[in-house]
Computed example of a mutant assay.
Amino acid sequence: MAAGESPSSELQARAIATLWRSLARRRLTTLWWLARLAGPLVEQLSRRERRVTRTNLMTVYPSCNDAQRRQLARQSLTHSTATMLELGFAWRGDLKRVEASILEVHGRELLDKARDEGRGVIVLAPHFGNWEVLNFWLSGHFPFTAMYEPPKLAPLEPIIRQGRERRGARLVPTTPRGVAALLKALKRAEAVGILPDQEPDWGRGVFAPFYNRLAYTATLLPKLVARTQARVVTGVALRLPGKGFAVHFLAADPRVYATDEVTSATGVNASVEAVIALDPAQYQWEYKRYRKTPQEAEDHPDFKHFRLYR
């Protein structure tokens, strides 16, 4: 046990790792069946996830009625449950089985074209479908580097790292050192992955519209593009319930290439909206995407350093 770790955290990590090993051997049909059973329980018992999901859906789909939003919330929580159940499959499942589960790949030519031109590729990978399967595919077909934040349960870190790196992906920290590693990879005409829908710390983002409501959005992308002339795509692994996955790469909204950070962030959010349209139920709506607000920014002592959407 490492210094600072409690016996309870070690036990939790062992239990989770054992569960992942067990789930890694299950068929996707079984995992989807379990998700459909557990999804309604998650909706009933996880008050926070239920409340945040429904609140977000009211914001982004105001024209839907309550029954439609409740149904979409239930479907979304079922898909999120499926993603959690599939972690063992993606990280510890037999390599040939996981590869065979990827039944379709759309838009690969966008990555190949960029590399043929000697450019790196930035893959915007939102919390949609199974992003671990997307990482699996990318790291098996391209030199791939992705930013990584260690889990809160520290004993799980080596297990997660091994799962994500087992096909050659390189994980780098969410620090200036990690950003430097991304830049080097892009200059080598490789692929890198960043999360476009995770709320950054104050000072590392701008407010830009996401479904017509301002969301605090990271500004890492325009910095990477400006220094490398990389191409930008959005990538997801769409779940085909009980069957497998379809990997989709879509050209990013052209505004992502703007040097103005607010314009670029607006393009990033529009790119995320475009992939959500593939199947809104597969987006992780339980994430508090609108947690930070412009009013909070104005009240912040470093407000002069923030930029708002206008």
Score class of each variant (00 low, 15 high):
68 Q>L: 01
70 R>Y: 12
71 Q>T: 10
72 L>N: 05
72 L>W: 00
74 R>Q: 15
74 R>N: 11
75 Q>T: 03
76 S>H: 08
76 S>R: 13
76 S>D: 06
77 L>Q: 01
77 L>D: 02
77 L>F: 03
78 T>P: 00
78 T>A: 10
79 H>E: 14
79 H>V: 12
80 S>A: 15
81 T>F: 00
83 T>D: 11
83 T>A: 11
83 T>Q: 12
83 T>K: 12
88 G>M: 10
88 G>R: 09
88 G>W: 03
88 G>H: 02
89 F>T: 04
90 A>P: 00
93 G>N: 04
94 D>I: 03
94 D>H: 13
95 L>F: 08
95 L>R: 14
96 K>N: 13
96 K>D: 14
99 E>S: 14
101 S>Q: 10
101 S>H: 10
102 I>W: 08
102 I>F: 09
103 L>S: 13
103 L>C: 10
104 E>C: 12
104 E>Y: 12
104 E>W: 11
105 V>K: 11
105 V>E: 11
109 E>R: 08
110 L>Q: 07
111 L>W: 03
112 D>H: 10
112 D>T: 11
113 K>S: 13
115 R>Y: 07
115 R>C: 05
116 D>K: 15
118 G>H: 07
118 G>V: 08
119 R>W: 06
120 G>S: 06
121 V>L: 10
121 V>P: 03
121 V>H: 01
121 V>K: 04
122 I>T: 02
123 V>C: 13
124 L>R: 07
124 L>N: 04
128 F>H: 07
128 F>D: 00
129 G>W: 04
132 E>M: 06
133 V>G: 08
133 V>I: 15
134 L>R: 04
135 N>W: 03
135 N>F: 05
136 F>Q: 04
136 F>L: 05
138 L>C: 01
138 L>A: 00
139 S>V: 01
139 S>R: 07
139 S>I: 01
140 G>K: 00
140 G>L: 02
141 H>D: 04
141 H>N: 13
141 H>R: 06
142 F>A: 04
143 P>K: 07
143 P>E: 01
